[in-house]
């Protein structure tokens, strides 16, 4: 029988230069987002003469940025193919605890703020631990349960009361300016930079993408999948607490039903930003643009007196748009 000869192997070299394709460069979701953002601004300007005014833009930014802090860790979670629908409840619980320790337990406001952050992080930590210890259950169902539980605890603490009377300096978070720039905007930019660097420039970020594409292969490659997940969910809880501080500061008080359905806005912003719900894909810059799209759209529609509850439709539609368009595009390319 004829023998197969062993091919003598040729020394091969591989290119280590990243290939650059102009088509790919322009074929990016972020360009589409930028165009949509410009469209939204143009629309708002045409609808309301008050829109393109530095003061009004600045105020608008202050209003919608509070929940934007959660978008970053939510993007991490979605890249890992998980989801966290308990973040709105975490905002409520951490702000309620903050107000209660300040008003009822006599803690200083500084102390209360720290406690708020701890409570938020703890909520996230519990989510993360449950998710890695009970792998048979999806993150959907676990965070659904904690979503009810966290808000339930907030109701047990405050019933349906509001709690406020924060010291004057606390209002700075929500209303303060530094050199004419809203404090929240400065913090938002810092957070965006930090999360962006974390995701795109560190080994931790690389692990997040790896887990999103293939968690089993990641585990076999020595990635500590469980620890990464726990850290990311804890970050989500922590950022929810940051949101809680800004929200309570801006509103001057808090109550258990605060931040209801924030998870939808947050997930919609992340999905619109190009974070695929199938995992592994998306960049943080997209979510930043998406935050401004959703924020300005809501603000602009508010200017022309569309009631805020109707805006639910807009956010829902944007979420659908974000998840459907890439699928349609892909199927057309395949054909």
């Amino acid at each position: 029988m004829a023998q197969k000869s062993i091919q003598p192997y040729v020394q091969r070299t591989l290119s280590a230069e990243r290939p650059f394709s102009i088509k790919q460069f322009f074929f990016q979701w972020e360009w589409l987002l930028a165009a949509i953002l410009l469209g939204v601004i143009a629309l708002n300007t045409s609808l309301s003469p008050y829109f393109l005014n530095v003061n009004s833009l600045r105020d608008a930014t202050m209003v919608f940025l509070d929940k934007a802090f959660i978008v970053f860790p939510m993007a991490f979670i979605m890249i890992m193919r998980d989801i966290d629908i308990s973040v709105g409840s975490t905002v409520a619980l951490s702000s309620v605890v903050m107000a209660t320790v300040y008003n009822s337990l006599g803690a200083s406001m500084e102390m209360a703020v720290v406690i708020c952050l701890i409570v938020g992080a703890l909520c996230g930590l519990i989510n993360g631990l449950l998710i890695v210890k009970f792998k048979e259950l999806s993150a959907v169902i676990i965070t659904l349960a904690t979503m009810i539980l966290y808000r339930g605890i907030a109701y047990i603490i405050l019933e349906d009361q509001a709690s406020g009377n924060f010291p004057e300096w606390f209002g700075f978070f929500g209303w303060g300016y530094v050199y004419g720039i809203p404090f929240i905007l400065i913090l938002f930019i810092i957070a965006a930079l930090l999360f962006g660097l974390l995701l795109h420039k560190t080994t931790f970020g690389r692990h997040i993408y790896a887990i999103g594409h293939n968690d089993i292969a990641s585990k076999f490659s020595g990635v500590n999948v469980d620890r990464t997940k726990v850290i990311v969910f804890t970050l989500a809880g922590l950022m929810a607490a940051v949101t809680a501080i800004f929200l309570a500061s801006r509103m001057g008080s808090t109550r258990p039903n605060i931040a209801n359905m924030y998870e939808l806005d947050v997930i919609a912003m992340a999905a619109l930003g190009g974070i695929s719900t199938a995992g592994g894909k998306g960049r943080l810059i997209g979510t930043v643009i998406a935050i401004f799209i959703v924020g300005y759209l809501q603000y602009g529609l508010g200017l022309i007196n569309i009631p805020s509850q109707t805006l639910l439709i807009v956010v829902g539609a944007l979420l659908l748009f974000a998840v459907i368009v890439p699928k349609l595009n892909l199927s057309r390319l395949k054909k």
């Binding site: 509850q309 829902g316 979420l319 699928k327």
Partner: peptide, 21 residues
């Protein structure tokens, strides 16, 4: 092929918004 959680979260808001409208 939208994930059920995403599709129903979005439609929940759209239907709720319609109700208010």
């Amino acid at each position: 092929g939208v994930l059920p959680i995403i599709a129903t979260l979005a439609m929940m808001n759209i239907y709720r918004g319609f109700t208010y409208m």
